[in-house]
Write a protein that binds this DNA or RNA. Structure first.
Lengths: 347, 347
DNA sequence: TTTAGCACTCGCACGAAGCGAGCGCCATGC
DNA sequence: GCATGGCGCTCGCTTCGTGCGAGTGCTAAA
């Protein structure tokens, strides 16, 4: 019967800790003898075995087969992470590297990419960075440029420094000066508003001035209608360092790994998962199948949301085998999120 | 001794063809008996064996160990691809899919990404797409927007519809109207020129009008100097569908595969390789170690350059195990390059 | 030139045996 | 009551031997 891990004795906790640590570093079932040697206690293997039996009853460890050592179960990892883990702050070199690479002057796409790259390299795991969803982008300036065949290139500058551009099709060909006027009109009317409000403003304007509306305004509104029909660009993310997963792959689990890679490619499941982490407070950890996706069995996901200007902007994290060095990786993910947030805010 | 494959007899050619085809589809050494059954000839295995011995002498096939069947060597594949291959035009559905997904109205980054995605999905291999290097981008319009702390957001519209933006630092804070004037000046002076010529034009202007130069012009030139100092964005590429490589990985070659993934990440070697293909006429094929990179042993690379508006713009291709379905993949890479080129040109 | 036949070579699957790691349990000692 | 030492037992892993089957190379004959 599985009893409550809360009542677990102090000695058992220590033993579990050492067992998990050892399994993480060695990758092989841990025997009672090894534990007897490694823990501070002066205990014989036989005693250890008794405790291990208890831990097994609680569902925290298991033996892959009779007369092998024990390995942690998902629950075991969970308990370890929640209650036994002493975090190891990242090396100052790593922090410096993150700081210097996360240069606020970089293009936003670049920034995300380097964040992902550095995170994966430092953690030696695969990294994920959800691209920031611009919540309520505030319009700064609009620009229209005529292209051939009734097409117009729209440039939107939002949030002070982000540039979006798209192409819209118009009913007829407009001259550069017409477009210029329309843009001026829109800029004077709507600058500083977020894109949703912009549409409302225009609608109100349309009703109030229906009669005395001139051609220029009509054009402006036609253009704006199409230009601001925000395609609500679906969220996306960056994956880097998948090679790290391969290097630690147990030879038999290639198929598992392939599934994982497929999930990375499909995007749907990963996006869903990352979405859940978006509104969590800080670092969040999914161990093994906790995420609810089969492909992630045997793998853990560690995420942290990052902010930009006080608002949650996105999530980043790493994926690695369940037996990863949590005490190192968790702070790393945490600090990366903070530094990325700082870089974004500082821009 | 290795004799010249040119003098290879007709029957031997047929045999080699069938052998390679069979090995590609089955993945296992091909025996003389199997060959005797499969080729049209009414020959006994013994005869086949004689021919196979000849082929082995020529270095086209080899046996992994005595008394196993034969498998093609890299040379064998090469000969097969060069002289024995009857291409198989892509299914019309595949072509239609490519056509519909390669929508000229898409953002350029999107376009490259979908090209890579579709190519990898249809070929069931990993795909590479080198992003187009804009050769001599022609300036269409410049826009300056003041940011905080002496920083200015520069928006460059080039080649009619590509938008680049970067941030530059200035000596002092400029007002929006100052920047506007500077932009107007630059636009009237330089629109339609490519970015290199722009700098020259400005330099000439600087010398000719040194005395009667006013503040506005001075500002314009300061801005332009920084804005057009093109960072010559280093070439980059997209990889998709690596999962396909995993699904065909022989269990022992995980290490090889890891190396391959690392090469994908490092970018340097791959870029070098793709660069070589940039100026090749059409489809180019590297079999096994022919590329000169160890990590690509056991893998083949098939590339084709794609054009945009009559000029070579970039390269795309696929990477897969040497034993891939060349007759299907080669035309596929070819047509993808053409369609991508068409989409780019049509924009 | 082709073929049939035969000897030979390997790889591979299977089972048996031995070994060693590690556990569970029990009786004993503190 | 907890810790311990001892003992037997269970597996997994390795090694070895065996047999089998696939496939070849060679030779001699058609």
């Amino acid at each position: 019967m599985v009893s409550n891990p809360a009542v677990i004795g102090d000695r058992a906790r220590q033993l579990l800790r050492v067992l998990v640590e050892r399994y993480i570093s060695e990758g092989q079932p841990v025997s009672s003898r090894a534990l007897a040697r490694d823990t501070g206690f002066e205990l014989s293997p036989a005693t250890i075995r008794n405790v291990m039996a208890d831990l097994e009853d609680m569902g925290l460890i298991t033996s892959p087969h009779t007369s092998a050592g024990r390995i942690p179960t998902a629950q075991g990892y969970r308990f370890f992470v929640d209650s036994l883990l002493t975090m190891q702050p990242p090396a100052s070199g790593e922090v410096r590297r993150l700081q210097s690479e996360l240069d606020p002057d970089k293009d936003i796409g670049d920034l995300m990419e380097t964040a992902s790259n550095v995170l994966s390299e430092v953690s030696k795991l695969a990294s994920l960075v959800l691209l920031p969803r611009r919540l309520q982008p505030v319009l700064r300036q609009v620009e229209f440029l005529p292209l051939s065949e009734n097409r117009v290139l729209v440039i939107l500058v939002t949030n002070e420094r982000e540039v979006q551009n798209r192409i819209i099709h118009t009913a007829r060909q407009y001259s550069p000066s017409e477009l210029q006027q329309a843009a001026n009109y829109l800029n004077s009317l709507c600058a500083g508003q977020d894109l949703h409000t912009v549409r409302e403003t225009l609608l109100k304007e349309l009703q109030e001035t229906r009669e005395r509306m001139n051609d220029m305004m009509r054009l402006a509104i036609e253009m704006a209608d199409k230009a601001f029909a925000v395609p609500e660009s679906e969220p996306d993310y960056v994956v880097k360092g998948q090679a790290h997963l391969l290097s630690r792959a147990e030879t038999d689990s290639v198929e598992k790994l392939r599934q994982l890679f497929e999930v990375f490619n499909q995007k749907r499941d990963i996006l869903h998962l990352l979405d859940q982490c978006l509104h969590a407070k800080g670092v969040q950890i999914f161990i093994g199948a906790e995420s609810g996706y089969d492909a992630l069995e045997d793998y853990s996901l560690i995420t942290a949301p990052y902010e930009a200007g006080g608002q949650v902007a996105g999530v980043l994290g790493v994926v690695g085998p369940t037996r990863m060095g949590y005490e190192r990786v968790i702070p790393l993910v945490d600090i990366t999120a903070r530094l990325l947030g700082a870089a974004l805010t500082q821009r």
